[in-house]
Every structure is written in structure tokens, then in C-alpha cells.
Design a protein around this nucleic acid. Sequence first.
DNA 1: CTCTTGACCACTC
DNA 2: AGAGTGGCCAAGA
Length: 132
Amino acid sequence: MDPAGRFELFYRVVRRVPRGRVTTYGQVALLAGMPGYARHVGHALAALRGTAHRVPWQRVLGKDGRGWARIAILDAMGAGAQRALLEREGVALDARGRVRLADFGWPTLTPRPAPASRARSRPRTRGSTGRS
DNA sequence: CTCTTGACCACTC
DNA sequence: AGAGTGGCCAAGA
């Protein structure tokens, strides 16, 4: 398949993000069936700059902490543009530019109130190389 | 071809 | 809470 095919896989996932919602690079990679490839999602979206696309790239943020996401674009202008677009969609960003996934996250996560016992059970077991 | 950087993520100190 | 570290893989210099 053509090289762009792989990116298309990510784009397809991003396109599923409804307006007014946000997701994270890692989540996109996971939904695309390529866990651990969050970085590639970033590259794929970066490749969209200035090109004709219908990918809501602004709805993809970097994960910040447990239930928060944050704009990960290094370029100040790109980051500003993303923030503006998100606000226009109704996504409320914190003073620090963070978004609460519990409110705007996608897909809708199961509301998991922090249990009294610190049984975290390690949500991401990406220790394995995932190869072979 | 090697080295560096990157729109990442999670763990550790 | 902030900084450092390791890991993943791709693209650009």
C-alpha cells in the first residue's frame, strides 16, 4: 500500500472524534491498533500542515497527567491556532491550556472515581516492547 | 549513512 | 510538582 496509507489509518480515527471533544495521541494510536505509536500520530498530524485535509487535528492533544490533556504543539502559533479552534468548538481550556478529559474527552471514558485504596492496577502496561 | 529532533507517554527521582 | 530518563519510530539535516 502507499506510504500515506499508514497515516490515513490515524486520520480515520481522528475524524471519528466528534466536534467539541478531544482525544490524545496515545488514544488515537491505540484505537488505530498501534499502541505505543503516539509519536507517529503526532508526525502524521504534523504532516497535515498547510495541506487540504478534513482531519480535525485540533481535537488531538497530548496527555497531561491522569485525566487531563494539553496542547503538545511546540510551535507557538500552531498551539495558539489549535486552542482557538477548540474554544470555537466549545471546548473549555484551563488557564494552563489544559482540558479535562472527563468532560471533553473522547471516547467517553468510564467515570472512575478514585478509589479510597490506592489500587491503581497500572492502566498502561506498555513495558513490553510489543514486538513479536 | 549517522545524528538530532519531535504535535508522545509513563515511570522515577 | 518539576525535572530527568527510557522507549518507540519517523523524518529532516
